[in-house]
Design a protein around this nucleic acid. Structure first.
Length: 575
DNA sequence: GCCGTTTTCGGCCCGACTGTTTTCAGTCG
């Protein structure tokens, strides 16, 4: 069983225990273990085998045994027993806003309800309002929640959440009396998806700001309206997609702004580490202050970290995956920035399934400030995407040569996104591949292969001397489709051995390689390349989402190939 | 269920808001 599968199993245990009314700290132990396992940067099976898993913080005797069983046998009797004891419908109920494990348990124990449908009927029959701790409002809230179940509370991709967040933020900044305002939460940490928007502002008088917030034009529903905190459901149409997200606004006094900013940026796990650190120093940290016998004045977040004897941690690294330790030892990397990117390689034109000519794409790349730009249209077997035959490849090369004569200030590279065939061979023969400046090797077919076969297939492609980089390593589509099953550990090692790069595909629906694995790839010495996989001029700008992933994966400018100068890239590709 | 220079028991981050309650539990982040 893979790391992610083990983590999912542990999360499931935590949820099932909560529904049984177990001790909250026991539940947290499972939640923590799930997170710890998914962010391990070593092979889990190896750690089970050599016993080093038991040395990991948060993994004690009981968890070690359960994880070992999961890894070696692929299942866990304890989990199966829990599942058998808890109806699946109860887990669905947890998605209802304002409804947690305690209330779900009561609904089940008192009314024998096991499905959402039964719950809805019980609410309509006015049975739920009479439960202890429930009332008419809770019952109404449950019914509203069921009606919204399919639209609200779902995670949303960052490229959709970000514009909605910015739109709300801009209006809040314009409210009279607002001194400072910022997007916090997972959006500030640049997670690939968001469940809600956390917005913070400072002002002397919170009342008018709360009132104005719940009346913004994007408000679909007011969930809460307190003195300093309000929650809304906000909606916005973006390119034909209706984006619906919960948004919370908190108002604090301006001197407390840095504390609140740190607090609401999270992650929760990172905050807990900071607070524990404050306690060790005889201080207390919350969203208002860092204080002991007297409060420690902090003008910025950096001051807070300094007061805790830590270097400043960029929001993207605040996941409690080693950043606190690194900040203590002054070993945090200086993260790459969008401005460091000098060009991109994996892009499409009308030669295959793109929407614009090579010239239009190249000019758009130049307008973004890029020095070089690579076309990597599809290869022949991908007929549905207009894959190029060898004959058309040569015609395309001639066009690129002509454009390189004509255009100034941007160099176009001849590339291909060459399909990896089922057996791991490539879709063009070696002679043709040798004629490209670079080759992106990608999987677009046979997603269903068993993990070992898929891994062997991709690793074989990586041994081809003409391959430069691996495209979208898992084929995942965020919130829509899991990636194909593949042992990324082995893929990364193979890439390292054969000196191949791995792409961070910056399409917001992909963001593949995932940041957890980016960290791992860096540790193995693999060079990363950030590509927008642009199918139109406008999509070139998506590369910044790839930079976000790189930052979450702790990459510096030096770790990323396309931060290099044109001359350095030419030199490297001609080897 | 985990952890330990306060070490094998008794803690485990903490505050806002809501809805239910006459002082608080549950939920959320």
């Amino acid at each position: 069983m893979s790391k992610d599968e083990v983590a999912t199993a542990l999360e499931e245990i935590a949820i099932l225990l909560a529904l049984q009314g177990e001790n909250a700290f026991k539940i947290r132990a499972y939640e923590n273990a799930a997170r710890t396992i998914s962010s391990l940067d070593r092979n889990l099976a190896e750690m089970v085998a050599d016993g080093s898993l038991g040395e990991v913080r948060g993994i004690g005797e009981a968890l070690l045994e359960k994880i070992s069983t999961l890894v070696t046998t692929g299942s866990l009797p304890y989990l199966e027993e829990l599942k058998a004891a808890v109806p699946a419908g109860l887990i669905q109920m947890l998605r209802l806003p304002g409804i947690g494990p305690k209330k779900v348990k009561l609904i089940h124990d008192e009314l024998g309800i096991t499905t959402i449908v039964d719950l809805k009927n019980a609410c309509i029959a006015d049975k739920v309002a009479h439960l202890k701790g429930f009332g008419a409002k809770t019952q109404t809230k449950i019914l509203e929640g069921i009606a919204f179940l399919d639209t609200v509370g779902q995670r949303v991709r960052i490229d959709l959440a970000w514009p909605l967040g910015q739109r709300l933020l801009a209006q809040i900044k314009a409210f009279p009396g607002v001194i400072r305002a910022e997007l916090c939460g997972s959006l500030r940490r640049r997670r690939e998806t968001a469940k809600d928007l956390d917005i913070l502002c400072s002002a002397d008088d919170a009342g008018p700001i709360m009132a104005a917030f719940v009346h913004l034009p994007e408000v679909l529903q007011v969930v809460g309206h307190g003195e300093t905190k309000s929650s809304i459901v906000a909606a916005l149409m973006l390119d034909g997609t209706k984006v619906v997200l919960n948004a919370d606004l908190r108002v604090v006094k301006d001197p407390g702004f840095p504390f609140a900013l740190a607090y609401f940026t999270g992650s929760k796990e990172h905050n807990i580490r900071l607070r524990q650190r404050a306690i060790e120093r005889g201080l207390g940290l919350n969203e208002y202050a860092l204080s002991g016998k007297q409060s420690v004045a902090c003008k910025t977040e950096a001051d807070i970290y300094k007061a805790l004897d830590l270097d400043y941690v960029e929001p993207e690294m605040r996941e409690d995956t080693g950043e606190v330790e690194a900040a203590e030892k002054h070993q945090l990397p200086k993260l790459i920035e969008a401005a460091d990117i000098r060009g991109v390689f994996h892009n499409h034109s009308t030669w295959s399934d793109g929407a614009a000519s090579i010239e239009e794409m190249a000019n758009a790349a130049k307008a973004l400030g890029f020095e070089y730009f690579g076309i990597g249209d599809h290869s022949q077997s991908l007929a549905f995407a207009g894959g190029l035959t060898p004959e058309r490849v040569k015609l395309q090369w001639a066009e690129i040569d002509a454009l390189n004569q004509k255009l100034k200030g941007i160099r176009i590279f001849k590339g291909t996104e060459c399909d990896i065939l089922e057996d791991g061979s490539l879709d063009f023969d070696d002679d043709l591949l040798a004629g490209f400046d670079y080759v992106v090797a990608s999987v677009h077919t046979f997603f269903h292969l068993p993990e070992a076969k898929q891994t062997e297939r991709v690793c074989k492609a990586l041994t081809n001397p003409h391959v430069t980089m691996l495209g979208h390593a898992t084929g995942r589509l965020l919130l829509r489709r899991d990636g194909y099953r593949i042992d990324l550990e082995q893929v990364i090692r193979t890439a390292a051995t054969h000196k191949k790069m791995i792409e961070i595909n910056a399409q917001p629906s992909r963001l593949d390689l995932d940041w957890h694995w980016v960290k791992r790839a860096k540790a193995e010495g693999v060079t990363i390349v950030i590509n927008p996989d642009a199918h139109s001029p406008g999509e070139l700008a998506l590369f910044t989402y790839g930079v976000d992933v790189a930052r979450r994966g702790w990459l510096t400018k030096a770790d990323v190939f396309n931060t290099r100068t044109l001359n350095a890239v030419i030199k490297s590709l001609s080897r």
